[in-house]
Structure formats: C-alpha cells, structure tokens
C-alpha cells in the first residue's frame, strides 16, 4: 500500500476532525481509497471517513489491508509535516508498522516516521440507505457557531426543520436560547447558501457535546449537510469535493 498527498493540510484536518471523538481505529485500504468507520466510546455517534483514491497525488493498494492506528499518535506524526509538505504513507504486507514520509516542495527537507500498528477489533455497522425527511445545506461555520453559542445554555439542542427555516433551540439552568436560520440562495457564492429540502417536517433532539465534536470538521469544508428523519440518527456530512467526505451519525434523544 502506498498513498501520496500533495499537501499534508487535508490529512491533518481530517485527523483533527475525528481524533477527539474516536481514539483508536482501523483504516481500511482498498484499491478505491482509504476509509474508516468507528463509533465513539459510548456508542452514541458513528464516524465514517472516505478518502477516494482519485483525491491522492498517487495511490496504489495491491491487497486490501486494515491498519489499526491510534489517531492521537497519527496526529503527533502529522504535526511534524508542514501544511504544504507532501505526505506519503507506506505499508508492506504483513508488516506491523506504517511509514510516513514528508517532503517539502523544494525537496530540501525529507522526514520519515514509523508508526506501530495496533490490533483493533472493529465492529462495522451497516448504515441503511435512508430517504431523509429533511435535508439542510448550510455554511459549516454557521453550524459551528450555532452549536457553540447554544452550548452555553444547555446540553441538548432541538433541531426543527420547516419549509423555509430551521430552528435550533436549547434550554438550561440559566435560561434558554434559539437560533433560526432562513433559507437563502446565493448564485455567486454557493458556499454561503442555506438550502432546505423538506419532504416532512422534522423535530429531533441531540446532545450538543457531540455536535461540537462534529464541527471540528468545519475547516475541511465550507458547507455542511444535515440529513434528518424523525426517530432516526442525524447525518452530518462535510463533503470534500474530489477527495471524499466525513459523515457523522448521531443517535437522537427520545422521550421515553
């Protein structure tokens, strides 16, 4: 297995976006790309990352391999790469390590690191194809700010989607808060658009703690998609055009 990115920045951001939610995980490498699927330790959220082979500078995977890695260790290794350095990952069949090579574009500095692989029992969950009742596309910075703001007032947020607006509400010991975002088009700046596709109105409650973990992916993508159906996990997708995506799934809080 050998995969090379032209710039380390994307991989650094991907690891920063998931490492606090899932500690150790397996990267599944096939000839179509690298992916990981992992639950957080309390089994409330699920993370699915796909890095497509087309998104790499070069990519070769002769035999499918699952590499168990501590994401905190991977983050440490990647700290040693400059944002504009190229990154090459190499793993030989049966080897218990993965190699990282960072090269500056002027080629005057090359650094190499070897990370020990771990044996990880991963339980892959089947994610059923879902026709969502409401899909909201919005700037990822708006979602990050909304979740951060409401976290000051409560632990949970109720997200209610109607035809032309989406409302985020919370309440706690000191008071209540809500943020309403209205659909708005923008032909010259599609990344600032708020688009709502509503088949059925949806209202669901989620733990803000997890949403704040998810918005660590905001630096990867200008836009985010919230896919919701009543009594179903929320899917928060950060698309990376040409490269792949990070999808987070979060189980709702439900009144017993």
């Amino acid at each position: 297995f050998e995969a090379k990115w032209d710039h380390a920045s994307t991989l650094k951001k991907v690891i920063d976006a998931v490492k606090d939610l899932i500690g150790d995980t397996s990267w599944d490498c096939t000839n179509t790309g690298m992916s990981l699927q992992s639950m957080d330790s309390s089994h409330v959220a699920l993370v699915h990352v796909l890095l497509k082979s087309e998104g790499f500078e070069s990519y070769r995977c002769d035999r499918n391999v699952s590499m168990g890695i501590s994401l905190n260790s991977m983050a440490k290794v990647l700290k040693c790469a400059g944002n504009d350095d190229s990154v090459t990952l190499r793993h030989e069949s049966e080897s218990s390590v993965v190699n990282f090579a960072f090269e500056s574009h002027k080629e005057e500095r090359v650094s190499e690191f070897e990370l020990k692989l771990m044996n990880i029992d991963t339980e892959h969950l089947g994610i059923p194809e879902t026709e969502y009742d409401s899909i909201i596309k919005m700037p990822s910075a708006d979602l990050r700010r909304t979740c951060a703001d409401l976290s000051q007032f409560g632990d949970s947020v109720t997200i209610s989607c109607a035809k032309s607006d989406v409302r985020f509400e919370t309440s706690g010991d000191i008071g209540t808060g809500n943020v309403r975002l209205s659909a708005r088009g923008s032909s010259d700046k599609p990344e600032t658009e708020i688009a709502i596709e509503m088949i059925n109105p949806v209202s669901l409650t989620f733990a803000l703690k997890y949403l704040n973990f998810f918005t660590k992916a905001a630096p990867l993508s200008d836009t985010v998609k919230l896919c919701m159906s009543n009594n179903h996990p929320l899917c928060v997708e950060f698309p990376m055009p040409e490269v792949g995506y990070i999808r987070y799934y979060l189980a709702p809080k439900i009144d017993e």
Binding site: H43, L46, H124, L125, T205, P233, A251, K253, I254
Partner: peptide
C-alpha cells in the same frame, strides 16, 4: 427527560 439512544439501536453490526 429525553433519553439518549445508542447508535446501535439503529445501525446493526454488519
């Protein structure tokens, strides 16, 4: 009080 569900209530091991 709303109860936090597990993601495993919805997605089963494949």
């Amino acid at each position: 009080m709303a109860q936090q569900k597990s993601i495993m209530n919805y997605f089963k091991a494949s």
